[in-house]
Amino acid sequence: MSCLIIVGGQWGDEGKGKVISYICSKDKPDVIARGGVGPNAGHTVNVKGKSYGIRMVPTGFPHKEAKLAIGAGVLVDPEVLLKEVEMLKEFNVKERLIVDYRAGIIEEKHKLMDRQDEHLSKEIGTTGSGCGPANVDRVLRILKQAKDIEELKEFLGDVSELLNDTLDNGGDVLIEGTQGTFLSLYYGTYPYVTSKDTTASSFAADVGIGPTKVDDVLVVFKSYPTRVGAGPFPTEMSEEEAERLGLVEYGTVTGRRRRVGYFDFEMAKKACRLNGATQIAITGLDKYDKSCYGVREYNKLTKKARDFIEKIEEVTKVPVTIISTGPGMNQTIDLRAEKL
């Protein structure tokens, strides 16, 4: 693996948690580092039938041999982080977690500002987690850093040094991005976006590695894209149609019902370009074609499903290497050995 970045190719909620868990279980990276915005992104991880909603700890936590890192570019809510560390104590997260001492800190005032701001809360539909106002303070150079917070003292370290040393010594690093490409402050559906860039280049910067250290970028797409909050959604279907197709979902952080749409091939092509994708993962193929549920071999997929995968490859010019056919870790088709 060397250095792999995993990125959402839509508006978040693409199933990155499942893909990350699968790759960690197979490839066993030495360090799993989290880039991205902060606790406004939620990931659901299923371990032995139990679901964990995670907002701060890297979602590769079930792989107990890896160090877990939160990069300097990530905003940290100490309250959320410490609750998760406690919740995940059976995975020894406390002993493995390194928070970069330069990471920005979300305070209660940032959350209040986020929720009370009419533009952010009503028009944009932010999560209310304080990330936008905290990033404003970071730009103004008045935001506190992790090194200023006593409760985080035992977790502090230099994530950039850790990752570069690991790579220089022949180790493997997995970098988790959060949100999705089209929530990027630069390349997303502005102004209905998050408060910073959410593409692979920024995730590398978040954890302190240069672009020449990145070997692969895996972009994750869901067979039916979803979106929480306001903003353009060209292929959006009605709530009634989503219910008919069994595609009712709720956001991990907000609990709001997700808007659902049909797969957008041109949008996928654009996401691959923006991220420099070398691989694609498709999740929820069993939602696209229910008869694919749990299938673990590509040649056992239906023609409808194979045609869908092949069209994605044709349009994006990027190989589909991982296909998820259900929530379970073993409900995965891994084509990396054949296509890379």
Rank of each mutant, 00 (worst) to 15 (best):
G128K: 06
K213S: 13
T321A: 05
E123V: 15
V193M: 03
N164Y: 10
Q331W: 11
V228S: 09
A33Y: 04
A72C: 13
K50E: 15
Y224K: 11
V248M: 12
L183E: 00
E95L: 09
T226L: 07
D27W: 07
E107G: 11
G71H: 10
G71E: 08
E154K: 14
I98S: 08
M267C: 12
E240I: 12
D13C: 11
I124D: 01
G130I: 03
D13Q: 10
Q331R: 05
I149M: 11
M1D: 06
L4R: 04
P232R: 14
K339C: 02
E266V: 11
K304D: 09
T126I: 11
M267F: 11
P39K: 10
V207R: 02
A33K: 02
M113V: 13
E107K: 15
D264V: 06
G246K: 03
Y250H: 14
V220C: 00
T226H: 10
E249S: 12
F155T: 04
G132V: 12
Q279R: 14
I54G: 08
I149C: 02
I280L: 07
W11Y: 15
Y186P: 00
P133E: 06
D215Y: 07
L163S: 04
A33T: 06
Q145G: 11
A230C: 13
F233Y: 02
G208R: 05
E310I: 05
E95H: 09
L68T: 02
D117L: 08
G170M: 06
I333T: 09
D117M: 08
N330Y: 14
R34M: 09
T178G: 14
Y190C: 03
V260A: 10
L183P: 01
S25R: 01
V136N: 09
L301H: 04
